[in-house]
Nucleic acid binder design. Structure first.
Length: 479
DNA sequence: CTGGGGAAGGGGCCC
DNA sequence: GGGGCCCCTTCCCCA
């Protein structure tokens, strides 16, 4: 095309009823603008203007108090950027129009809020390994999914960097501050879901299959939490999780794996029971050491956690928000801090309550107690085989390895075990001590008899040590 | 392959 | 805040 395009003239005959008329339309040549570029430029410009206004405190109609530090901002911008502010400002109603302090936070630092606010007004998220957790917590508090996703991607890419470059020295320092950009300061919902931040391409060449396949989680929340746990690989959180994955080795007796994974491990161990016995003292020491390290790392993980974050839950009749506590690793919220502490164990993998009969570890004392009563004490007064009620006169406790259960006399005779020696139940006198020790590190000689090794556990199904003991409920008092 | 039962894990809430 | 109880869900094993 040479020169300027010529106008196109079109003649149109319009007939209305019986009469007709001729119209001449002149179509001007189209000028091709990239509307996407215009949009981006406009958004960028608008954001810049708003940011400038914020910095100059022009037209700011909203104040946010964070640990005593006052931030001025625009109500509309906050409303558009944060679910928290959306809820808060919409709750304020007409009275909220007055220029008063609208929100007060003590659950994150002014520095963190500065990062968040800068992101809101610029699309630039200044993340570093030092602030990513707290920024993510704050974003979670403020219900800013896009920021959460950026943080998650930052954490994930940090982990990838570390793992990929483990054997080369090309590891990027996590102390380097990364800056994520949200483009024009706004992103699509799809981007929000997936997180639009792409780590450096080289980082994605690593095969992620291991971490994905070994991930232990039931739902997206836990997946998110797992991502969070993959924080800075130099951090205890990441180390703890990675170590947990490593413990999927079926030979590992620590039972720190959650749920199904551990049960799978348990099954694998049993199958190997006939092939190998491991009484190697070095391995025992390794186990002890690993356990100690794990406990230490759990402590370190707790130490690295951001302050427990309170979130605004539902509003009661007086429009007063009900405080809830939010898990920094997932979206779960609880009413009580103590419940959150308990919940955190499912993220940290901390299992402070070991069963000294089988070495299995539990997150809660009540679970340990329940396990012990069911598995090792045969407290259920029913025959395992026929499910009938068993009394002292009508049944026995059958010992199968460390397991104990009751069977009625008829069922015992039926399975032909009546020639198996009875357990004197002497061991059960020591049982109360089994539940007292947290982490079981202090077991004495009396308890030692119950400190079965992994091999003992493995022998559970062998049936070789099947023992029958007289039912004696008095000996089974736990505490 | 499927359904039932047992064991474990997690949440809510009371004391 | 910790302990404990209750309830529900999930997972695994087995018939």
């Amino acid at each position: 095309m040479e020169g300027s395009p010529q106008p196109i003239t079109v003649q149109i005959e319009v007939r209305v009823g019986g009469s007709s008329a001729e119209l001449e339309m002149v179509q001007q040549p189209q000028r091709w603008f990239n509307t996407a570029d215009i949009t981006v430029a406009h958004q960028s410009n608008l954001l810049k203007q708003l940011n400038q206004q914020r910095r100059q405190e022009l037209f700011c109609d909203c104040s946010v108090l964070v640990e005593g530090q006052l931030f001025r901002a625009h109500r509309n911008v906050l409303f558009a950027s944060s679910g928290y502010f959306r809820m808060l400002l919409s709750q304020q109603g007409p009275d909220g129009l007055s220029d008063s302090v609208n929100a007060t936070f003590d659950v994150f630092s002014p520095e963190t809020f500065t990062v968040i606010l800068d992101f809101i007004y610029s699309g630039q998220l200044d993340l570093s390994s030092h602030n990513v957790i707290e920024v993510m917590s704050a974003a979670s508090y403020l219900q800013m999914n896009n920021v959460i996703n950026y943080c998650k991607n930052f954490i994930k890419s940090s982990l990838d960097i570390s793992v990929k470059d483990e054997d080369s020295d090309r590891c990027l320092s996590l102390s380097e501050t990364c800056s994520f950009t949200s483009g024009a300061g706004e992103e699509t919902s799809e981007q929000q879901q997936q997180g639009s931040v792409s780590p450096p391409p080289a980082l994605w060449t690593r095969d992620n299959s291991r971490s994905q396949s070994s991930f232990i989680g039931k739902d997206s929340d836990q997946e998110a939490s797992a991502s969070a746990m993959k924080t800075n690989p130099s951090s205890p959180a990441a180390e703890l999780k990675i170590e947990t994955e490593d413990l999927q080795d079926p030979e590992d007796p620590l039972y720190t794996l959650p749920g199904s994974e551990r049960r799978r491990v348990r099954g694998g161990s049993k199958r190997r029971a006939t092939n190998s016995t491991r009484t190697n003292q070095h391995e025992d020491l390794d186990i002890q050491e690993a356990r100690t390290q794990k406990a230490e790392k759990a402590e370190e993980l707790y130490a690295t956690l951001p302050p427990i974050v309170g979130v605004i839950g539902h509003f009661n009749k007086g429009s007063n928000p009900i405080m809830r506590f939010k898990c920094p690793f997932c979206t779960h919220t609880v009413k009580r801090k103590a419940d959150l502490k308990r919940h955190l164990r499912c993220h940290t993998g901390e299992r402070p309550y070991p069963c000294q009969a089988c070495n299995k570890r539990f997150t809660r004392l009540e679970h340990l107690r329940s396990h012990f009563e069911t598995i090792h004490q045969a407290r259920k007064l029913v025959c395992r085989k026929c499910k009938c009620q068993v009394t002292e006169d009508t049944g026995h406790v059958v010992c199968e390895g460390t397991r104990r259960y009751r069977m009625c006399t008829a069922c015992i005779q039926e399975v032909g075990c009546d020639d198996i020696p009875m357990d004197s139940l002497e061991g059960t006198n020591e049982e109360p001590a089994l539940l007292l020790g947290v982490d079981g590190e202090e077991e004495g000689d009396t308890k030692r008899s119950w400190m079965v090794t992994d091999d003992d556990d493995l022998a559970e199904d062998s049936g070789a040590d099947l023992i029958i003991q007289q039912v004696d409920d008095s000996d089974e008092e736990l505490q």
